[in-house]
């Protein structure tokens, strides 16, 4: 037992470095992916044919292709086309696309949950479509989507472990490296799992609390 604890303690700095990278790559991917998801949701709803078509393509490819494939495409594939990305940039590219594609559906459902009557009232008062979106539809739609979006964010942190395939020194990669050096895979991967859980479990609880708070004025 003591042996295990001291092994964990020795490995912890490397894993915490890895966790930092995991959180960074997830954070940047979400910071790009959520707004992208909103834009795609609006694009998919748009009546403008070309916008609608482009949005649909981006969403369907992003949802259809496994994140691991997009990740490797960005890191190993794009250089062939003359675009070389760092492993961090490639990871952000792939995870942001994935986030945008999936969250666009979550956000679209949120936007569509806003009662048609409110939208009619808004246009009957002469409010421009863009104002109706900005003040009526998006604030309420995002509120509805928020819990699912934050749930998706924790999933994304877990999905960032795929970046180990493109040698990004994130939590899983670092744990794996320690494993190859010490052959104590079980112990080190357990610690990595605990660190992921240490972020995800409280986040899930926070989402539940948030969900209750957001519903407040409608009840």
């Amino acid at each position: 037992m003591n042996d295990l604890l001291s092994f964990w303690l020795d490995s912890l700095p490397a894993l915490l470095d890895g966790l930092t990278v995991s959180l960074e790559v997830t954070g940047v991917a979400l910071a790009i992916g959520f707004p992208l998801g909103l834009l795609l949701a609006l694009g998919v709803q748009s009546k403008a044919r070309s916008l609608n078509l482009i949005s649909l393509c981006v969403v369907e490819i992003g949802r259809g292709a496994p994140a691991l494939v997009v990740l490797q495409f960005a890191y190993f594939g794009l250089p062939q086309a003359g675009l070389t990305l760092s492993s961090f940039a490639a990871a952000v590219f792939a995870l942001a696309w994935n986030t945008g594609a999936y969250t666009s559906e979550i956000i679209r459902a949120g936007l569509e949950s806003v009662p048609i009557g409110e939208i009619e009232a808004s246009s009957a008062m002469g409010m421009m479509r863009v104002d109706t979106l900005r003040f009526v539809i998006i604030p309420q739609g995002l509120r509805v989507a928020a819990p699912a979006l934050l749930g998706f964010a924790t999933q994304m942190l877990q999905a960032s472990s795929l970046c180990f395939a493109i040698a990004l020194p994130e939590l899983t990669s670092n744990a794996y490296v320690i494993g190859t050096n010490t052959f104590r895979y079980m112990e080190i991967l357990s610690l990595a799992g605990i660190l992921y859980a240490a972020i995800c479990v409280p986040a899930t609880i926070a989402v539940g609390v948030l969900e209750q708070r957001l519903g407040k004025h409608t009840r």
């Binding site: 009557g117 009619e120 808004s122 409010m127 003040f135 309420q140 004025h217």
Partner: peptide, 25 residues
């Protein structure tokens, strides 16, 4: 126009409901 189902904006205070359209329109 006034609707059967009121159609107020539930995420805004009563004051904002009445003021926002004046500001935007």
């Amino acid at each position: 126009m006034v609707f059967q189902s009121f159609n107020l904006f539930p995420h805004m205070s009563v004051l904002r409901n009445v003021s926002l359209p004046q500001e935007r329109v």
